[in-house]
Nucleic acid binder design. Structure first.
Lengths: 255, 255
DNA sequence: TACCGACGGTGAACACTGTTTACCAAGCAA
DNA sequence: TTGCTTGGTAAACAGTGTTCACCGTCGGTA
């Protein structure tokens, strides 16, 4: 019966609800961007919408819940922006696509520092409520659209180019378990998007290389956004470009 | 006259004031560690001290001001811990000292994730109030005790070992200005601690290498603390060790 | 047509928060 | 003794997340 009423309600009322739902998150992000993290508040959102605060509880269980969904929206937008950047690069120019997605990530981060901080520099909230290892599967970056963009580009690189990755023997043995599981998850999500990658090209060394790549990209961007370089940097972009070139050369991605 | 009263007051009353001052920051940090960032609040601190909230304004201009000083305390503690780790390593084992300080940094970060987040993953607060470039000098890591530890070890490495750093010609020209200024600042703070480093060994390539080293160390540690590796990691320590070995080999720090 | 229930909103309240203000007691200086 | 500083208090203000009782306005159904 409940299902019947739910499906039956999908007329005009449903669209209106989804619309205000979207508006809530839009207003929240607008406050975050223009007035900072401290200004995004249930009552401020409601005020901005000409509505009263408790009404928001018809849409979200709590303020934290709302923030979580805003984070997901941010990831979606970031992914869309990166997809737009990628659209300008020919399909077969895989190094160019790697460069584009890395540059796009940095450009987005410096253009949206508060969103970056909210999404990429908050301790993992999922670890607190549930039982840690139990919900660890949700930590998979393959689930969020931003991570998927990165992984897809990585997959394209793998099937079109010969990378300079270490042989499996050089990968620390203690990482075999985690890396292998990640590889399995990667193959799954990539084949879901139409990319079928031969098992032999997806070595542990490749997975390990992706990890190291991400560590350096993230470190560079985060330090720039947080202003935590060991010295004041006049223009961080050349530094980023230099790091990117170093990365590309090291992983055999030179054009 | 004001000076006279100030100096005259430095009897028993002054010590008591400094004591409660210390207690305020201690209680604040305790709340941060045990109950999270959201729980460190003016009133909670006062409550824990058996005191009333406005009394804290006799010691700090605002809540933000208090937080800033807590951050400095955290940096001091981190520096002391690293100094303790260093004390166990012989003076002439410079690679061992580098390893010790890097391992100590990671160990501290994973043991104190909320303190790490507060200090190392908050957007630069100093950039908002003042005029940006005007107060940029305060961004210098040489001023904070944690950065000083790192830089001192780096200086010891420089005067005792031959590093594998790129020649100045490979450093991007656009970075010359920033790097040179950082080098000047480094030489100053290092000579202040008794380390006199010959100008010629302190090349731009060396400074650039230090920057890249920090980017990778920070990225690794931050991603671990935030749980933002691209896949769930069972035991991050071997991954860190692997990164550290790679770093050491790459910069010519092998024992 | 009449009813009934859910949806989405309101207003009031509660327990918090940072911050300001007026006030006050103790201690020291002149 | 007088006067000023120091460090504390209580009360208040504006703002926060959250809950609760209430209440129109609809859609679906008897």
């Amino acid at each position: 019966m409940t299902e019947a009423t739910q499906t039956a309600r999908s007329g005009r009322g449903e669209r209106s609800r989804a619309e205000t739902d979207r508006q809530i998150r839009t207003v929240a992000r607008d406050l975050l961007v223009t007035r900072g993290r401290a200004a995004v508040t249930l009552r401020a959102i409601a005020r901005e919408m000409g509505i009263t605060a408790p009404a928001l509880y018809r849409y979200y269980d709590s303020f934290e819940d709302l923030i979580r969904q805003v984070c997901e929206d941010i990831c979606v937008d970031l992914a869309e922006e990166l997809a737009g950047d990628l659209a300008a690069i020919p399909e077969d120019d895989t190094p160019g696509r790697v460069f584009a997605v890395c540059r796009g990530f940095r450009a987005w981060a410096v253009r949206h520092p508060r969103e970056f901080t909210l999404v990429f520099a908050s301790p993992d909230t999922r670890s607190e409520p549930a039982g840690g290892a139990a919900c660890a599967g949700l930590n998979d970056q393959a689930t969020d659209p931003f991570g998927r963009i990165f992984l897809t580009v990585a997959g394209q690189v793998l099937i079109t180019r010969e990378l300079a990755v270490p042989p499996d023997e050089q990968v620390p043995e203690t990482l075999y378990g985690d890396l292998d599981e990640f590889r399995r998850s990667l193959i799954g999500t990539l084949s879901a998007t139409g990319l079928n990658i031969p098992e032999e090209v997806f070595s542990l060394g490749v997975v390990y290389a992706m990890l190291r790549f991400w560590v350096r990209l993230y470190g560079q961007v985060a330090l720039e956004v947080f202003g935590r370089f060991p010295f004041p940097v006049a223009d961080p972009e050349p530094m980023f470009e230099s790091m990117l070139n170093e990365l590309a050369a090291e992983f055999g991605l030179t054009a």
